[in-house]
């Protein structure tokens, strides 16, 4: 194939990616995704894993667990 066809093809693909992203951005705005960002930031917390609670630590080694058991 001709070089120019490839350049056109590549430009077409890049444009498609760009336009797809732009459409997604437009949808997100219309859908109100950017209207309350504070609430959005907290959407990952719920009653099971609430805000303000650390949810991961090194496990207790078996020796220490045994010592505690006594």
């Amino acid at each position: 194939m001709d070089f120019n066809i490839y350049i056109l093809l590549a430009a077409g693909i890049a444009t498609t990616f760009f336009v797809a992203t732009a459409i997604a951005l437009h949808w997100a705005h219309k859908n109100g995704q950017f209207s309350n960002l504070d609430r959005g930031a907290q959407s990952i917390f719920d009653d099971d894993e609430p805000l303000g609670q650390v949810t991961d630590r090194f496990p207790v080694s078996r020796k220490k667990r045994a010592a505690k058991g006594k």
Partner: peptide
């Protein structure tokens, strides 16, 4: 944020970052 139990520092900026990368 999940492990530390505190929301992301600036959620607004995170959204800006995503769209900049995507575009």
């Amino acid at each position: 944020p999940k492990v530390l139990g505190r929301p992301i520092h600036s959620y607004y900026l995170s959204v800006v970052g995503f769209w900049a990368l995507a575009l």
